[in-house]
Simulated assay, not measured.
Amino acid sequence: MSLLEQLTKDMVAAMKAKDKATLSVVRMLKAAVANEKIKLGHDLTPDEANGVLAREFKQRKESLAEFEKAGRQDLIDQVKHELAVVEKYLPKQLTPAEVSQVVKDTIAQVQATSMKDFGKVMGAIMPKVKGKADGKVVNETVKKFLQGK
C-alpha cells in the first residue's frame, strides 16, 4: 500500500472517529505528498515519500522549539500531537548507538582521518540514513568522531 493510500485510509478512519486533530494532520500530510507528486510529475518512490514526511516532521520539531521558547503551552500540545501522528508514517528511526556504528563504519570506509574529511564522510553517510536519522544528530556524531582522531 502506498503512502498516499495509507493516508487516505487513515483520513477516513479519523473522520469516522470524529478525531479533528488527527484528521487535520493527516490532511496536511496527504496534501504535502500530493504536491510533491505533482511537482516531480510521477508517483513517489518510498524514499521520496519518506523525504516529504521527514521534512514535515522537521518543520514541526522546529515549530515546537519556537513555541517552547515563547511559552505557548496551547501550541506546544498541538505540535506534540502533530509530531506523534507524523512519526507513525516515518520509518523506524535509528538509535544513537546505531547512528554511531554507521558513522564509525563510514569513517573507516572512506578512510577519513581529520575534520578536513567531514564533507566526504557526511556525503557517504546521508544516503544510508536518509529518513531514518536526523541530519543534525548525524552531523554532531561525525564531528565527535572526527575530532577524536
Results as ranks from 00 to 15, higher is better:
residue 53 L to F: 07
residue 33 V to F: 04
residue 78 Q to E: 12
residue 51 G to N: 10
residue 41 G to F: 10
residue 79 V to C: 04
residue 20 K to Q: 12
residue 111 Q to R: 15
residue 74 D to E: 14
residue 128 K to L: 14
residue 138 V to I: 15
residue 127 P to F: 08
residue 103 V to A: 02
residue 65 A to S: 09
residue 86 V to Y: 04
residue 98 E to W: 00
residue 46 P to D: 12
residue 64 L to D: 10
residue 44 L to Y: 08
residue 97 A to K: 15
residue 9 K to V: 05
residue 98 E to F: 03
residue 32 A to K: 13
residue 135 G to A: 12
residue 73 Q to R: 12
residue 5 E to K: 10
residue 81 H to F: 11
residue 96 P to T: 15
residue 46 P to E: 14
residue 140 E to V: 08
residue 35 N to I: 00
residue 112 A to I: 07
residue 84 A to S: 14
residue 132 K to S: 01
residue 113 T to N: 10
residue 57 F to C: 01
residue 115 M to Q: 05
residue 112 A to R: 05
residue 132 K to V: 05
residue 84 A to Y: 02
residue 132 K to F: 06
residue 21 A to D: 12
residue 58 K to T: 04
residue 14 A to L: 05
residue 82 E to H: 13
residue 14 A to V: 09
residue 68 E to M: 03
residue 99 V to D: 00
residue 13 A to L: 10
residue 105 D to Y: 04
residue 75 L to C: 01
residue 21 A to P: 00
residue 92 K to Q: 14
residue 117 D to F: 11
residue 14 A to I: 06
residue 5 E to C: 01
residue 97 A to Y: 09
residue 40 L to W: 00
residue 92 K to Y: 08
residue 28 M to R: 11
residue 87 E to I: 01
residue 113 T to P: 00
residue 113 T to D: 07
residue 136 K to R: 12
residue 134 D to T: 01
residue 57 F to W: 14
residue 79 V to Y: 04
residue 11 M to Q: 10
residue 64 L to S: 10
residue 106 T to I: 10
residue 37 K to V: 01
residue 50 N to Y: 04
residue 67 F to W: 11
residue 26 V to C: 02
residue 81 H to N: 10
residue 124 A to M: 09
residue 115 M to N: 09
residue 9 K to T: 11
residue 139 N to Y: 13
residue 60 R to A: 05
residue 138 V to G: 09
residue 5 E to T: 12
residue 121 V to F: 04
residue 48 E to D: 02
residue 71 G to A: 02
residue 123 G to D: 07
residue 64 L to M: 13
residue 84 A to R: 04
residue 25 V to C: 08
residue 102 V to I: 15
residue 42 H to Q: 11
residue 55 R to L: 01
residue 20 K to A: 08
residue 118 F to C: 02
residue 126 M to R: 14
residue 136 K to C: 03
residue 142 V to E: 02
residue 124 A to I: 07
residue 139 N to M: 06
residue 24 S to K: 13
residue 34 A to Q: 12
residue 97 A to W: 02
residue 87 E to A: 13
residue 14 A to R: 01
residue 9 K to E: 13
residue 87 E to Q: 14
residue 85 V to K: 00
residue 120 K to P: 01
residue 85 V to W: 02
residue 80 K to D: 04
residue 6 Q to E: 11
residue 41 G to I: 04
residue 51 G to D: 07
residue 72 R to G: 00
residue 106 T to H: 02
residue 80 K to A: 00
residue 40 L to D: 01
residue 90 L to G: 07
residue 81 H to L: 08
residue 132 K to D: 05
residue 116 K to P: 04
residue 40 L to V: 08
residue 23 L to Y: 10
residue 5 E to N: 09
residue 80 K to G: 00
residue 61 K to D: 01
residue 94 L to D: 03
residue 68 E to T: 03
residue 35 N to G: 13
residue 82 E to R: 00
